[in-house]
């Protein structure tokens, strides 16, 4: 982690460069250092400019918009309404349902992708015939365009003609409204998402797995550990830092995922998959209410910032614990 070098470095190491500078400080050095510093700023300037233009300004505009009643067909003509948008958003069920949908979707997707991705990585990390083929097959969904995945899943989920219900029909089980039944909508969307995204986890975990020394597996075998114990006692601790990062990425990506949900259910059935992002889209473009959409967006930003902070705190604690030993 990058912050380890900021505050996690032992004091001795941190002070070393400072001492090295002291005797060398002279007039020439000072101006040279100043030039060096300016050069440093010059190097980061394009990145900063990019962030300011494409991130900071729109972000501030968005927050400003959340205090107006701007409409889609007149985006700049909103009148200030104070905190009315926040009051109405926070008192309406729609926002809380949407937050719940986001939490459910994120939790299920993260759990699903991490478990499935790790299992797949462990599987293809073993040596067997056709491993290369299986690896590419398993990585395939990640390479597919999301829109294509969503359309194919929508077709398979179709209530009367979809592959799933036809399969169930053959087994003599009645059909399910995968995307139309409020009890199933979320599960169906999560399943499609997990299928699409788990290869990412698989590839990252696979890379981490390949850095486990083969001798560790052999040592565990000599020590009489079975496969499950080998995994839990030796492999999993090794993967833990990777899994934490992957889980963070998956969480952030799940909170902001749009296309697959929008294309499968558009937020339905009965708003069960109306995550914050879909909610923002619908409020902004279908309801044409930019002010309220900006409000929901700002609240969503608070939520994702909170989640990220919690993750970083956990990560920092784990790192400190590791270093203490």
């Amino acid at each position: 982690m990058s912050y380890r070098t900021v505050d996690g470095a032992p004091p001795g190491r941190a002070s070393a460069p400072r001492e090295a500078h002291r005797p060398a400080r002279g007039r020439g050095t000072r101006s040279r250092r100043r030039a060096g510093r300016l050069l440093g700023y010059a190097f980061i300037a394009p990145a900063v400019l990019y962030l300011v233009v494409f991130l900071v300004v729109p972000l501030l505009q968005g927050i400003a918009m959340s205090f107006t009643d701007a409409k889609l067909i007149n985006p700049t003509g909103g009148d200030p309404v104070g905190v009315d948008n926040y009051a109405s958003t926070l008192t309406a069920d729609r926002f809380w349902n949407s937050l719940l949908a986001t939490v459910l979707y994120t939790t299920a997707t993260v759990a699903g992708t991490v478990v499935l991705g790790t299992a797949a990585a462990v599987l293809v990390n073993r040596a067997f015939r056709g491993r290369a083929l299986l690896r590419s097959l398993l990585a395939f969904p990640y390479a597919m365009p999301t829109v294509a995945v969503a359309l194919v899943f929508a077709w398979m989920y179709n209530q009367s003609n979809g592959a799933f219900n036809r399969g169930l029909g053959i087994l003599g089980i009645g059909e399910t409204g995968w995307l139309t039944d409020p009890d199933w909508g979320m599960a169906s969307v999560v399943a499609a998402t997990v299928w699409k995204v788990f290869p990412f986890v698989m590839l990252v975990v696979l890379a981490a797995l390949q850095s486990v020394s083969a001798e560790l597996y052999e040592a565990a075998r000599i020590d009489g550990a079975d496969a499950l114990n080998t995994f839990r006692s030796i492999v999993l601790p090794h993967l833990a830092p990777t899994l934490r990062i992957v889980a963070l990425l998956m969480t952030i990506w799940s909170i902001r995922r749009f296309e697959i949900i929008f294309l499968l259910t558009g937020g339905g059935p009965v708003e069960t998959t109306n995550t914050l992002v879909i909610n923002v889209y619908r409020t902004a473009f279908s309801d044409q209410n930019l002010g309220v959409a900006a409000t929901v967006g700002a609240l969503g930003l608070v939520v994702s910032l909170a989640v990220t902070c919690v993750f970083l705190l956990v990560e920092r604690r784990e790192t400190k614990r590791e270093e203490a030993l």
Binding site: Y41, V56, T76
Partner: peptide, 21 residues
């Protein structure tokens, strides 16, 4: 650093304004 990002921001505002106009 701060002044630079401010400058960047004002540039962005100007650019955006120009686009809107």
């Amino acid at each position: 650093m701060i002044s630079r990002s401010l400058r960047g921001a004002s540039l962005a505002v100007i650019t955006t304004g120009a686009l809107v106009l």
